[in-house]
Design a protein around this nucleic acid. Structure first.
Lengths: 140, 140
DNA sequence: ATATTTGCAAAGCATTTGCAGAGAT
DNA sequence: ATCTCTGCAAATGCTTTGCAAATAT
């Protein structure tokens, strides 16, 4: 089914692309940087050039298969695109990323935009703070 | 009063720092990149090294005098810090940045965070789309 | 007088690009 | 057979840093 995704995106089915896709799927719950993907592939002896990883990720993004995020001016991270939009809470201590979505919130944003005569296309909403675990550890 | 700001921040009052501050004040309604600031100073024959501009801006940020923003992975831009928090609408066509703030929105974010056991410290909320002017031009 | 700040040029980091060879259709 | 993709290494763009001279206190 990966092949199909690639073909639908008008991309040839190649080793590097399948490998990158596999890595993203194997780490669905993490947000990986291009370099993370590269490293994971290297460790698995699946040799793919860094440049290719960057190129493939950006092609996937253009094809709408992955989403690119930049959290507080760190390096970009990628996640497989899901149909439903979501926003992020990023722990400033451990770096953990939690996703959330709330229809009311999205509605309110639409309304706010409209009130400013602005036609919204997409948005980034990132909350930075302490995740549950790090709060607990801080108290200890 | 600029001098006072610098002194309060524990920074010595120097030419370059005053000049950078002056540029930011003269462009309150724009979001300037480090290079924008550098260029503006050059054009005014107020020679300050680029490195200094970067250093000064980051010192100002640490001191809470300016806010640093990164819109959709472009270069960082800076704006004088205001007491009230605000979010941004960025026109994807002309790059214009509009600020907005809505108490209900901030409240909802707090609630959402709490519901996730997350302790929010700050957030970035950027909407990308078409500003009023660019919408009009698109139709023409 | 002394500690901080500046400018320059060099280094750093993430990411992109040119190009010739390898690979997919 | 042809057009696309890959890997490498070099280039890019923004930002940071080392260091000696200049400056603020």
């Amino acid at each position: 089914m990966d092949k199909v995704d690639l073909q639908q995106a008008g991309l040839r089915v190649t080793g590097p692309r399948l490998k990158v896709l596999a890595v993203l799927e194997a780490h669905r719950d993490n947000h990986l940087s291009a370099d993370d993907v590269y490293r994971i592939l290297c460790e698995a002896n699946d040799d793919v050039g860094v440049a290719t990883v960057y190129r493939v990720l950006s092609q996937f993004e253009s094809a709408g298969m992955v989403k690119r995020q930049v959290f507080s001016s760190e390096r970009a991270v990628y996640e497989l695109a899901e149909e439903e939009h979501h926003d992020h809470m990023i722990c400033t201590t451990c770096g953990d990323v939690e996703e959330f979505c709330r229809a009311e919130l999205e509605q309110m944003l639409e309304q706010l935009a409209e009130a400013h005569g602005f036609k919204p296309l997409y948005h980034d909403l990132n909350m930075y703070g302490l995740c549950r675990r790090c709060q607990a550890q801080q108290q200890a």
